[in-house]
Amino acid sequence: MALLRLKGITKSFGAIHALNGVDIEIHPGEIVGLMGDNGAGKSTLVKIIAGNFPPTTGEIVLSDETVHFNQPLDARAKGIEIVYQDLALCDNLTAAENLFLGREIRKGIWPFRVMNYDAMFKKAGELFEELQSETRPRDIVRRMSGGQRQAVAIARTRLSRAKLVLMDEPTAAISVRQVEQVLALIRRLKQQGISVVLISHRMPDVFAVSDRVIVMRRGAKVADKEIKHTTPEEVTGLITGAIRAA
């Protein structure tokens, strides 16, 4: 049984047709690489899955149930976590505050229910350690490096027990060592039965962890192949359009 099924998803922004009829299935514990040129519609697709905006037409089926997400919280409640391409961080807050934004740990009884900073700093520290990131929970995001920021965005997906984690270019800004950490995390998620959609322009990353690769071009899916039945050369050809479809 598929964890997630997208049927005929289209999305138009006014005159721009970002997606025209995409069908995708994702199974439990599966890692799917999602590739495509700039503007192919990858981010738009995962944002629809994460409840950022509804598809213009098409159906989203999650564990055999048709879902309609009105806001990101709805998707999160169903076990879908996302790392946004632009990371969605508030520069003026600390790493820990960003991590817990919208689901702060609090203590006490209303009206004296206050932020439990100790618990949040501690948990944030543990998550950054898991990612082997040099991110300190108390640092202000404005003064953090690209990799540290990325760690904060990725750590967010670890706060709840997700079924599906969508990662939109999680390795774009980070060092070789940290890329390895993110890939290791993705493998660990798989072991826990969590599915991952990995958007990346880095061919080696996708081939290192994915079970399957989906290639998009101009808003359409042009290939959906088991990783062992394809090659980086073929995928490159599919992305550029040198190979029309596979």
Binding site: N52, Q71, P72, L73, R76, Y84, L87, A88, L89, C90, D91, L101, G102, R103, R156
Partner: peptide, 9 residues
């Protein structure tokens, strides 16, 4: 970052 706040719930 109003948008980020919105996206995180």
């Amino acid at each position: 970052n109003e948008q980020a706040a919105q996206l995180t719930g």
